[in-house]
Design a protein around this nucleic acid. Sequence first.
DNA 1: TAGTGGTCTAGACCACCAT
DNA 2: TGGTGGTCTAGACCACTAT
Lengths: 258, 258
Amino acid sequence: MTEHKRAQPPSRRIADALREAIRAGTYAPGDQLPSERALASEHGTARNTAKAAITLLQVEGLVTVEHGRGAYVRRAGRMMRMGAQRYSRRVRTETGLSPFRAEAQRLGKTARVEVPDISRTTPPADVAERLRVSPEEPSVAQRVNHYFADDEPVQIGTTYIPWTIAEGSVLATDAKTGTGSIYGRFADLGHEITQAREEITARMPRPDEVKALAIPPGVPVLEVLHTGIDQDGEPFEVTRFVMRADSNALDYLLTIED
Amino acid sequence: MTEHKRAQPPSRRIADALREAIRAGTYAPGDQLPSERALASEHGTARNTAKAAITLLQVEGLVTVEHGRGAYVRRAGRMMRMGAQRYSRRVRTETGLSPFRAEAQRLGKTARVEVPDISRTTPPADVAERLRVSPEEPSVAQRVNHYFADDEPVQIGTTYIPWTIAEGSVLATDAKTGTGSIYGRFADLGHEITQAREEITARMPRPDEVKALAIPPGVPVLEVLHTGIDQDGEPFEVTRFVMRADSNALDYLLTIED
DNA sequence: TAGTGGTCTAGACCACCAT
DNA sequence: TGGTGGTCTAGACCACTAT
C-alpha cells in the first residue's frame, strides 16, 4: 500500500470538500454550512481544525460567519457601477444629482450621504503632489463623505480642495452643497471639470475602514484617487474614494488616442 | 476598581501592539517580527494565541510569514501602472511593444510573457454578452497569457476573440503575435481599436490564481474586464486581466463629456 | 542542530442568537 | 434554553531554514 503521507492537512481537506460542495451547488448562496462541531465529528477532527477550515474559506471571501448563527455561503451583492460618465455636466444639470445619488437611483436604492467632517488640514503627500500644494501646511480644506445605499455603508470619499479655492465658499463650511452636487459649486467658482484622472488600486481594509464600512473578513476595498482638472488644465480637487469591493465596480469607456 | 471585563481578547491586544509598533516604525518594512514563541511568553499567552495575532496582521496584508524563517513587515512593492493610453496606436507603431512590455520597460523591469494555452472554447457568460456571441457554443478563440516582470508573475490575461474573426489568423494558432502586439494583428484584420470599455472589480484570489500568481495571504486581485471596440463600434475582443493588487495600479485620464 | 512557522488535539469558558 | 461561533490553553509533532 502506497500511503500518501501528509497528502493534505485535515483542515485543508475539510476546506476543499466544502469549496467543492459550494461549487457543485450542494450549498447554494445564502445556505448555512454545517456547524463547526458537526464538521469536526464528521471528519473525525478537533473542533479547532474544523474552524481552521472555515477560516480559510472566509479569508477567500467565499463564506461569511455570523456569531451565534452559523457560517453561510456568501451571496453575490448587486453592484454599484461607478462610471466615468458620472461627472458629466448634463447629468448634473438635468437631474441635479451627485454621481453617487444618480447611480443609486438607477439601481432603485435609497442613497444617503453623511458628512462627518469638514475642516482645514495638512494634506497627505500623494494628494499634495497632485494638487500642487504644500504637504507641510494646512493648505487644503478636507470634506469627508460617507455614502450609504439602502442604509448600508458602501463608500467613503475624502475630498481635498486647495484652501485658496475653498476659502470663503460653502465648500469649506457646509455639508450641503446644493443642486448639482459639489461640482456645481466648483463651476460657480470658475472651475468646470473637463478632465479627471483616476488612479485605482485595491488592498485589504484598515481596521478603521472595517468599522466604518462594516466590511466582513475576506472583502477587499477599491481605492480610487480621483483628481478633478478644470478648463485650464489645473487640478482643483482630489478625492480619495474607498469602497467595498464586493458591492462596487468601476466602469470606464475610453476613447483610444492616436 | 472598575475592571474592564473582556476589554479585548489577548490575540487582538497582541495584534494591536504589533500594528502600532509597525506604524511607529519600531519594525520597519522588511524587518522581522518577534517569533511566535517570543510573543507568547512576552504576553503570557499560549503560542496559539500569538499565532492568531500574527494571522490577523497577515490577513490585513500588513505582514508576510515565511515558513521556517519568520514573520516580516511587508514592503511596498513598486507599482506597474496600467494606463489607458497603453492602447494608443502611436505607442504601438513607434515602439512595437505590447502595452505590458511598454510599461515594464518604463519601470526598468524585464518583461516576459508566456502563452500556456490557445484554444477554441465556449466563452463565459459575461464575455459572450460583451462580444455578442453564443455562450453555449465554442464561439471564441481563447488565448491565455501569463505576464512576468523580473521573473515574478504579476498578471494573467485571458483574451477571447470571436471565432469568426480569429479563424485562419495567427490569433487562433500562434503564441507570437509579432510587432505591435496583438492589436497590430487585429488592425491587419480590419479592426482598429478606437474605444475600450474597462470594467474593474477587486476580490480575493481563487486557489488557482494564488498558485499562478504566487500571491501571499492578504493580497487581493484586481480584475479588469476589457472590451476592445473597433472603428465601426463593434466589440472584437474581450480580455479578462487578473493582477496582483499589491504590484499593479490602474491609471485613467478621462475627458469629461458634456 | 537549533530555531522558526504549520498544524493538530481535547477540553474549557464566554458571547450571541433563536426559541 | 440549547445551539452556534469566539477564543484560549498546554502540549505535541512535523516541515522548513539557516548555521
